[in-house]
Amino acid sequence: MKKRILITGGAGFLGSHLCDRFIAEGYHVIAMDNLITGDLKNIEHLFKLEHFEFYHHDVTKFIHVPGELDYILHFASPASPIDYLKIPIQTLKVGAMGTHNCLGLAKAKSARILVASTSEVYGDPLVHPQTEEYWGNVNPVGPRGVYDEAKRYMESITMAYHTFHGVDTRIIRIFNTYGPRMRLNDGRALPAFIGQALRGEDMTVFGDGSQTRSFCYVSDLVEGIYRLLLSDYSLPVNIGNPDEISLKDFAEEVLQLTGGKVNIIYKPLPADDPKQRKPDITKARNILGWAPLIGRKEGLAKTYDYFKTLSSEEWSKQPKEFQSRK
């Protein structure tokens, strides 16, 4: 019999790619999503498959999945500044109550669970690059606190279930990721920059553009998730691409890629915006044998090609002002 895996947030950007990967690996995949930020078009190509199911459900409510479960991937959560500033309570609830429900399900089914944490647990870091041993510099009452603290709580309750109940757990800390199926209007730097360039609008950079990010292509991230799930390591592991770049230089790269003739304009830096992001991936290399394979030039080209296929109606949904700060 095929192994059965539940993927929460399965209609989202990352969740849909994970559904594809585990279908390709021969699993029976159950995707769950309340579609607040997910989109069925990301997984509609899977609906015809015998070994794919979709549950339209909010994980902050009791989760019932009939039959056995071998694995759970908990990826349900808003993941961009625009989202979690617009729906802060839901963001907190999915990190707290949603994680609690998923862990309870894992305990009941004797399933291994991997939870999706984030580099945001490091806040505006005082250590660079960020190692898993760094505890972070987070403002719990700032505008980003609803996301940062939800993920920090997620890690805490996951480890509590691991140590107290013996649940088989994994924790991944995801750094900035990009690729096809990113939402156009989620406010993150890459879709914001490409959207503005294609529409002939000036490209918005917050602050002086010296703040850095490290962008990992989605197929590399999915490979890291797959390896971590099947490993025997229960402490947090960074998965990201350590090729660090300033947002000003990143905007210039996007301009060169799109052939845009627009200007780069600068706006005030939002509160608590991290000044640096770069993962230390020593653990991923040593424990998982993982390292990213797709360089930023190749990944950007693939992502740009995807955005060019979208309809004018989808482009019209883009907000005029981007908060491209994550």
Score class of each variant (00 low, 15 high):
residue 275 K to S: 15
residue 201 E to C: 13
residue 252 E to A: 00
residue 241 N to G: 04
residue 177 T to G: 06
residue 255 L to S: 09
residue 206 F to D: 05
residue 227 R to M: 07
residue 203 M to T: 08
residue 216 C to T: 11
residue 271 A to R: 13
residue 265 I to D: 06
residue 187 G to K: 10
residue 184 L to D: 01
residue 219 S to C: 11
residue 239 I to F: 11
residue 191 P to S: 05
residue 242 P to V: 06
residue 283 K to Y: 15
residue 207 G to K: 01
residue 246 S to C: 03
residue 251 A to Y: 08
residue 241 N to T: 05
residue 187 G to L: 08
residue 266 Y to C: 11
residue 232 D to T: 09
residue 234 S to C: 14
residue 211 Q to W: 07
residue 177 T to C: 14
residue 207 G to A: 01
residue 272 D to T: 03
residue 234 S to F: 11
residue 258 T to E: 00
residue 199 R to V: 06
residue 250 F to I: 05
residue 253 E to G: 04
residue 227 R to Y: 10
residue 212 T to W: 05
residue 233 Y to N: 08
residue 193 F to M: 09
residue 197 A to H: 05
residue 218 V to N: 03
residue 275 K to Y: 09
residue 218 V to Q: 05
residue 236 P to Q: 06
residue 239 I to T: 03
residue 263 N to R: 15
residue 213 R to Y: 08
residue 259 G to H: 05
residue 205 V to M: 09
residue 202 D to P: 08
residue 205 V to T: 02
residue 173 R to W: 12
residue 244 E to H: 06
residue 245 I to Y: 03
residue 189 A to H: 12
residue 216 C to M: 09
residue 214 S to L: 06
residue 210 S to M: 07
residue 273 D to S: 15
residue 198 L to Q: 11
residue 267 K to H: 12
residue 233 Y to V: 14
residue 263 N to P: 06
residue 173 R to P: 00
residue 252 E to Q: 08
residue 216 C to W: 08
residue 282 T to G: 06
residue 274 P to H: 02
residue 243 D to H: 15
residue 253 E to A: 07
residue 282 T to C: 02
residue 226 Y to D: 14
residue 241 N to F: 04
residue 239 I to N: 01
residue 202 D to T: 09
residue 264 I to Y: 08
residue 244 E to T: 14
residue 226 Y to S: 10
residue 211 Q to C: 08
residue 187 G to P: 00
residue 190 L to P: 04
residue 273 D to F: 11
residue 189 A to I: 14
residue 266 Y to M: 10
residue 248 K to T: 14
residue 174 I to V: 15
residue 276 Q to A: 14
residue 235 L to G: 07
residue 268 P to I: 01
residue 218 V to T: 09
residue 193 F to W: 10
residue 275 K to I: 13
residue 252 E to T: 09
residue 189 A to K: 10
residue 221 L to P: 06
residue 194 I to K: 02
residue 275 K to Q: 15
residue 261 K to R: 13
residue 258 T to Y: 04
residue 221 L to W: 09
residue 212 T to P: 01
residue 230 L to T: 13
residue 197 A to E: 01
residue 236 P to C: 04
residue 269 L to H: 13
